[in-house]
Design a binder for these strands. Sequence first.
DNA 1: AAGATTTTACTACATCTGTAGAAGGCGCCA
DNA 2: TGGCGCCTTCTACAGATGTAGTAAAATCTT
Lengths: 124, 124
Amino acid sequence: MKLTEAEWQIMNALWQKHPATAREVMDRLDRRVQWAYTTIKTMLTRLVEKKAVGEIKQGNTSVYDPLVSQQKARLSAFRSLLDQAFDGAMGPLVHFLAEEKQLSAKEKKELARILESEAENKGE
Amino acid sequence: MKLTEAEWQIMNALWQKHPATAREVMDRLDRRVQWAYTTIKTMLTRLVEKKAVGEIKQGNTSVYDPLVSQQKARLSAFRSLLDQAFDGAMGPLVHFLAEEKQLSAKEKKELARILESEAENKGE
DNA sequence: AAGATTTTACTACATCTGTAGAAGGCGCCA
DNA sequence: TGGCGCCTTCTACAGATGTAGTAAAATCTT
């Protein structure tokens, strides 16, 4: 389930609250996104075709519901990034994150802390 | 500097060893990628147009060199993913990673460990 | 130097993406 | 009941992307 950039915008809005009509999706779209109503309808239609979203008619109006969870979509995007840009492995990503000056030490520590504790209590 | 999927393939090959000719890039392409020589040339040309790659003629043959570092490209891809799929923040990503069963506790701990130590000695 | 091989520069073309307009249908209000 | 406003379905269309073929020029090989 590969989503395009524009599709992510729509999905993000839909995950926020659903089921939702096209108009509701529109209202919840990121502020930076200023699309015509029909553009949103087009995206929604394409997402329905891709089975990423379900559509039911409520009278004359369509109501949409995500068919893929945010978690699933995120996983797929994450894996793609890993494959494409990090040799498909966590190692290079970790290395990159560690090297990256753009991430403050604070962010890194936070990241480390959460992962640490998660690994602790969910560890197998 | 946004790279497409196909462009990543080329860049990955080019970062491996450079400068390199189109033919050398071809030889280093991921095994799964079976492109015609001219396809590679086309990609290279487009990358030159985008200023992601430099080109110099060595006699009749072009030799290419990356103009963007792998680190930079990775950062840009990482940020895009963050913006698009994780509300632009590390928080949700961390959360996702922690929740994600696909990542073993071992991987998580490893990740945590490296980040922790990095944060320690480079910390500001 | 002629043939074989390699490279280059152009052109091609189907899909996918982003973005929307047009036109027709439906319900509600005056 | 005639509009007004909102919803729907279709159609459009340019630019990006993936993937190459052609033909001509340069180079190597005997």
